[in-house]
């Protein structure tokens, strides 16, 4: 199997990582060698195997419906790259 430049462009779009031509070529090379190695899994028949999502041998614990987190606006906004007291700010989005 071979991952072409078009696929690389598509994945980069989905990943929101810009790639130029040169970078795309390098990535295609790297990914192809990695997937060559990953293809090894096709040797195995797994039709009747249950997929394993978590190795944690426990069940999901449920918390009670209590408000514990107070107003953290100052803390939450503090690290944001664009200065604003009330909001996170991003370039204008047109829907």
């Amino acid at each position: 199997m071979s991952i072409d430049l078009k696929t690389i462009k598509h994945i980069s779009k989905l990943s929101r990582i810009s790639v130029d031509e040169k970078k795309a070529e390098k990535l295609a090379g790297d990914l192809n060698s990695i997937f060559d190695f990953i293809e090894k899994l096709n040797e195995l028949k797994t039709d009747n195997v249950q997929p394993l999502t978590s190795v944690a041998e426990t069940t999901l614990k449920l918390r009670s419906d209590e408000v514990k987190s107070k107003n953290l606006r100052d803390q939450v906004i503090k690290n944001s790259p664009k200065e604003n007291e009330d909001y996170f700010v991003v370039p204008k989005v047109i829907e």
Binding site: F88, V89, V90, P91, V93
Partner: peptide, 14 residues
Amino acid sequence: SIHDLDPKNTFVDL
């Protein structure tokens, strides 16, 4: 997302 508070930016309230 609030689009009408600023001409150049979108503001986000989480």
